[in-house]
Design a protein around this nucleic acid. Structure first.
Lengths: 204, 204
DNA sequence: GCGTAACCTTACGCACGAGTAGGTAAGGTG
DNA sequence: CACCTTACCTACTCGTGCGTAAGGTTACGC
């Protein structure tokens, strides 16, 4: 209204607004008009800078995903023991989600449920899953417990899914402490995985 | 076109079509016209029998949720050991999801991401979570390991989330065997939970 | 001080899709 | 056969929201 701001600043404001509105109403129910209004700008500006609704959504996805990845990468200590590595990663992950609940909702819920964007997200998740699967496999070979490659991937998928679910829960519970959530997850994953990796198997 | 069918039959056809279309496009992107077309009927019939789009979606939710609950309940043996109980429940669960992938997508992905229906689904999930939390707690007290009530709920949330994630994965992988998925989940959950319930705890 | 480029607006076209009005025909019941 | 109820349709209205055309305003280089 009063100030004419440079492009980069406006773009960030728009993305902030878009994440907020997408998070609140979902992709389809969110209107470009509302996003423009929340950003304090008129609609054609959004089209001029970020393109169509689809492109805007993908831009949100990418920004939030990048931030998440960076936050986790910054928290990891590459030389640590596997469990320490996992612990720091989880801590960074839940801390980030706790601090960016709207972003998480866009990233996880919306992107996942809109068939058009599911692929976009699936790729990112697949990379994470493979990283986790790699950790599991190296831990297993170190402990001299064999296993087929596909099993590690499926296991990793379950772990990542559990973390996502807890993160999703965290996003809806303002009062919950991210560190507490990370500790729960750590107990859940590691103590279980530890036993598994020592060769214990449950049978029907 | 050729046959005039009784109401109950048409209603089921419409629900089948609705689940299919909602699953394919998502709630908002799905059109009543397409649902009507897939059902082999005209649009006003859908409104006459199942009501508005929202009501139709809720009807889908309820039918699929009921079928799922019944399938799981039918698979459970009430007098069995906790792990046997869990195993049969999981097996029934994954078998059902494998056989009704469209239904699962409506139930889990769409209902969850549409803020308007999230509450509807959250209630159903909350009941399941409390059941699982109850099983965990009784298993823990039997093993004389204490724990705050909230911890069991959070743990249950993680387990349910892991199961949902695996089910979601199963829904997208036509070639995956439900029994195999259930076995993975069982190893994942029980071996971990078992250790946890014996009092083992991971610390930073 | 004046062009010009970047910023920003109002005001619309247009398509799509939810929901409805009003009418037709089939089959049962007296 | 007259009737009524139930199944079913075509053909609309109308709101909403994406995307755009065309024009105004500020900053900044020269």
């Amino acid at each position: 209204m009063l100030k004419r701001l440079p492009r980069v600043v406006r773009e960030q404001q728009m993305l902030d607004a878009a994440v907020q509105v997408f998070s609140k109403h979902g992709f389809h129910a969110a209107s470009m008009d509302e996003i423009a209004e929340v950003a304090g700008i008129s609609k054609p500006m959004v089209y001029a800078y970020l393109g169509t609704k689809d492109e805007l959504f993908v831009a949100c996805l990418h920004r939030e995903a990048t931030r998440l990845m960076e936050a986790v990468a910054a928290g990891v200590l590459p030389a640590a023991r596997p469990d320490e590595q996992l612990w720091h990663g989880l801590r960074a992950f839940f801390t980030f989600v706790g601090a960016h609940r709207d972003g998480w909702r866009v990233l996880y819920r919306q992107a996942r449920s809109e068939p058009h964007f599911a692929g976009e997200l699936a790729g990112m998740r697949a990379r994470i899953v493979e990283v986790v699967a790699g950790l599991l496999e190296s831990a297993a070979t170190a402990a001299e417990v064999p296993g087929r490659p596909g099993d590690f991937t499926a296991m990793a998928y379950a772990y990542v899914g559990a973390a996502e679910s807890l993160a999703d829960w965290l996003a809806d519970h303002e009062e919950e402490d991210p560190d507490h959530t990370a500790t729960r997850m750590m107990n859940f994953v590691w103590v279980g995985a530890d036993s598994l990796l020592q060769g214990r198997v449950w049978r029907a």
